[in-house]
């Protein structure tokens, strides 16, 4: 099954590399959000540095919506989802493969944006390992939940509008947990960031398990 997971992830990433949608559209979009936050907060360096954790994760979640949408689009055209099922790959492998591809893209985006906020907002960095660990763990939850909810609305004409309504409330704990962990790493709030990391890990793990179990049900009914 691991081989199948790798194949599916490879397929999605290869399609992404060739189309360059993530690079040409999602990354500039994420960067634009950071700039808009700067405008909205009057480019006040103290305010921006204080609120960097929250602003960063809101930017990540909004950009992730585009990435999830793109991941769904890959299977939407030319009966690709039917063809995927005909290959005999198990739904669990499809789910994990697509989540892995999305995870890789979001990790890259998250580290790129981290560079963005460090340059643009200039927050203090007190605990770099915590900062990196938060990105690595929190994005797992976003990718897993995004892949599952993305599949739920695939093939729907109204998917662009329904996805945010469905996914954003679900990702509320990620925004809370990751912002808190970042706040600890940036020493803006006195909290135990590593404990928040455990919550993020539990969220990501839960969604990986739930997604693996329910993805088959969802795929069957769209075939």
């Amino acid at each position: 099954m691991l081989r199948d997971v790798g194949l599916i992830a490879n397929k999605d990433l290869r399609a992404e590399l060739r189309s360059r949608v993530a690079l040409n559209q999602i990354v500039p979009f994420a960067l634009l959000i950071l700039v808009l936050f700067g405008f909205a907060l009057d480019a006040d360096s103290t305010t921006l540095a204080t609120f960097t954790p929250g602003l960063y994760w809101v930017a990540i979640v909004l950009s992730a919506l585009l990435a999830v949408h793109r991941s769904v689009e890959l299977e939407a055209g030319d009966g690709a989802s039917d063809a995927l099922l005909l290959t005999g790959v198990t739904p669990v492998a499809v789910f994990l493969g697509k989540a892995l591809a999305l995870l890789a893209e979001l990790w890259l985006l998250a580290f790129f944006l981290l560079g963005g906020v460090l340059v643009l907002y200039q927050p203090p960095v007190a605990d770099l390992p915590l900062l990196i660990a938060t990105i690595l763990v929190a994005v797992i939850g976003i990718a897993a939940a995004g892949t599952l909810y993305g599949a739920l609305i695939s093939g729907q004409r109204a998917r662009e509008t329904v996805l945010p309504i469905l996914l954003l409330p679900v990702l509320a704990p990620v925004v809370i947990g990751a912002s808190r962990a970042f706040a600890d790493a940036m020493a803006t709030v006195a909290t135990n960031g590593w404990a928040w990391l455990a919550l993020l890990g539990a969220f990501g793990g839960s969604y990986l398990v739930i997604g693996s179990y329910s993805y088959g049900l969802v795929l069957e009914d769209f075939s």
Partner: peptide, 30 residues
């Protein structure tokens, strides 16, 4: 508040197009 927002998403899924059976399973997962 989050429950309210989640329920709006659930109701939106119930109104998506597709077969009644497909819609039922999709809504059930949500």
């Amino acid at each position: 508040l989050v429950l309210f927002m989640l329920s709006l998403g659930y109701l939106a899924v119930r109104r998506l197009e597709g077969t009644a059976e497909g819609r039922a399973v999709r809504s059930a997962v949500v």
